[in-house]
Nucleic acid binder design. Structure first.
Lengths: 341, 341
DNA sequence: TTGTAGGCGTTATCAG
DNA sequence: CTGATAACGCCTACAA
């Protein structure tokens, strides 16, 4: 009829409630034989634990820290504000989160932050940082301390992280290329703009982009990446120069998630009507630019899905429950003006 | 420190637990004055109910029915299988669902099903059916019986449904048009194929599609919709005829979610290499066609998100909790070969 | 090694 | 109208 409970198991196995609990939670001090009896009874009855009742009894609190890059980024801001929203909403889920910003390019500072985290006061960590040997080591130490670790947006494939939530950057780059190739049908050159050529994501996107353009759109030539280090003045100079020297500019691919400088420049200057701009991440800046037809398409993470997924996965990891992979799988979203949310 | 409980309120207000409960759950039989005391204490303390404890005490079960169209549709099958998956996973959430298929074109059969539902045994209903006066009436009766009602995929805007989960079909059509216009840059004609011209969604998509093509891509001409009534033979004949008579065919827009007949035909016949096909919904058929470059793009619902959203919204409605609109907002997804999941 | 009793935050059933 | 008191399914002392 209704779901079996620990009482039912106790009765079925002919032991007390406490013993059932000990067995089910793999606590020591139970004879082998008793354990077997209990397990047998449990799966004869098809028992599955009621997590919320358990959490109620335990007064469980999930304490998570999110480590995000500092510096001005509308994408990161979106992540953070979604996180705040979600965590106030998820107070019901017994989850408390704190957010920390770390300097992206300083592995030692990142490590220092991770060390200073107070592993006693924490159950899990979601982090969006570039993978370096130092970070890998720090992750290993955090794992040793028993924390659940989720890599966010940017994977740490060679670390001991438990899970990665984010899109495949190569595929994201390939998607950008597919759109660019189909939009820009006349022969021409594609300018690739980035703010940090050293970021793994930017690199991977670029790789994917080049693959597809080379294989399927031979009428397009991809120019070497130009890097602007988030500096609007520098960006302005570079664009000026490119627009003057390149007659055949067919498109601009902004690989980094920082687009403001590029967009400001484009907005201020006359440009050909058939210059196709593709950028990453849906932020206030790209939203506005898409609305105004200043850019043609945006390739993006679903920020809300990502954050809620991180929270769900961290909780699942803590309770070692199974993760609902199909749900957590991050999709590469494409936005045009017409399908803006 | 930790969250205030009913005990805290009881103490603060100087009444018993039972009274606090009565007030908080708006049960009758409490003096005005006592109510005020309790409410005052509650929000002085910043009380928020612990839903899972409440559900535990109530032994609450959410019993939902999903009404989906019958007939062969990979999209509907995806919905149903996702629902089964989710509901087995959500046994933890005290939710049981049953699925019913109804004939899409027979309002009376739909109503009969809705009537025969046993409102006593149900807390809510999600339904994907065309809006007719009969359906509106049935929805009204179900609301009168106290059920939560969510429209799925296809809205019932003039009914008393509580919520709609699905994308805006006009916007979906506009999105398709934007892609079509940018992909098909040479002058030509667009064939619009549908399986049921009477469906509101198909109509709305077509409207959106035409708006954007007319406004932004004057080099394209959209032909009148051809309807195939899910009949592959008929579809074959129509396509044959179109391919022979139309020299300038630049694209095909499949507005209905049934694509198999079209895809089979395309696969069997030689076709121009620059014929751009755009379809709706990600199903095994469209997935395969996208992978093989037989179609250029798919506009889709996120089936998993939709189903989980319906479940969440129905639960929230039952407990009249607030709905997390930002999370539930269905997005119009775009798939190319490169960003297939 | 095992069992008993009480509590987590809420609701429900009794009396009074 | 109001207040004890006992559930709900699970966990955790403490005792045996």
């Amino acid at each position: 009829m209704s779901r079996p409970t620990v009482h039912d198991i106790a009765e079925e196995a002919g032991v007390s409630l406490a013993t059932v609990d000990r067995v089910l939670n793999e606590r020591p001090g139970v004879r082998r034989k008793t354990m077997d009896k209990v397990f047998a009874a449990a799966d004869r009855l098809g028992y599955v634990r009621d997590t919320s009742a358990a959490n109620l009894a335990k007064q469980r609190q999930y304490r998570f820290a999110f480590i995000l890059p500092d510096g001005p980024s509308q994408f990161v801001e979106a992540l953070e504000s979604t996180l705040n929203e979600a965590s106030s909403y998820h107070v019901a889920e017994r989850t408390v989160v704190e957010t920390l910003r770390v300097p992206q390019r300083d592995p030692h500072a990142i490590v220092r932050t991770l060390q200073g985290l107070g592993t006693e006061k924490l159950d899990g960590i979601a982090l969006m940082v570039p993978e370096t040997p130092q970070v890998r080591d720090a992750v290993a130490r955090l794992k040793d301390a028993g924390l659940a670790i989720v890599a966010l947006v940017s994977d740490l494939p060679n670390s001991r992280r438990d899970y990665f939530l984010g899109v495949n950057s190569v595929a994201a780059g390939r998607t950008a290329a597919q759109l660019m190739g189909r939009f820009a049908q006349k022969p021409g050159e594609i300018l690739v703009v980035t703010n940090s050529i050293h970021s793994r994501d930017s690199l991977e996107r670029r790789v994917g982009f080049d693959e597809v353009i080379a294989a399927e759109f031979p009428h397009l030539t991809v120019l070497p990446s130009v890097e602007a280090y988030d500096d609007p003045v520098r960006m302005g100079r570079i664009l000026e120069q490119v627009f003057n020297s390149r007659e055949q500019l067919a498109g601009i691919y902004s690989v980094g998630s920082g687009n403001s400088a590029l967009l400001d420049h484009l907005r201020r200057h006359e440009r050909q009507s058939d210059l196709h701009v593709i950028a990453h991440e849906l932020t206030p800046a790209t939203y506005r630019a898409l609305s105004n037809d200043e850019i043609a398409a945006v390739i993006a993470h679903n920020v809300g899905h990502l954050i809620r997924g991180a929270l769900r996965v961290l909780r699942a990891l803590c309770d070692d429950l199974l993760i609902y992979e199909a749900q957590e799988q991050a999709r590469i979203e494409i936005f045009l003006r017409e399908n803006l949310p």
